[in-house]
Amino acid sequence: MLFQLTDRPIEPLISSLHPHTGAIVTFEGRVRAVNDDREVSSLEYVAYPELALHEGHAIVSEALERFDIIGACAIHRTGHLVINDIAVWIMSAAVHRKEAFEATEYIINTIKARVPIWKKEHYSDGETTWVRCDHCANPHDHSKQSKASLKRKRYATR
């Protein structure tokens, strides 16, 4: 399966994946305890599953076409996650490491830009907010932005 959504822990799914050959690059996106100087206690991921699965599958398929890799897959969590949980897990396998690194970066950047998944941060003071990352709309911008300008914006809904 090229792309999966799951409301269960990702760790057991990883161990069941068969590594193809050669260089394997994996990326784990984990829940961190601080974002924009605020103490995060947990995260809630919500997906639009029909479109998320379609786009996720398309993104991994694109990576298989664009890069000289043997295999790739990605898994994204939904539901309530606590600090250090794996939110997203990506693997690219290739003969040489360069292609595997490039494909993995392409997949995570494009997932962040295109897949309809939203993240609500829960803070230790009890507040919550939906996170938006404007630069994620164009993943290439990430490499051009200063660290300070990559700060995520929060937005109220009313």
Binding site: Y48, V88, A113, W118, K119, R132
Partner: peptide, 10 residues
């Protein structure tokens, strides 16, 4: 129809 607000996966 679904209006997609800014996404934040990953």
């Amino acid at each position: 129809v679904v209006f997609i607000p800014p996404v934040a996966g990953g």
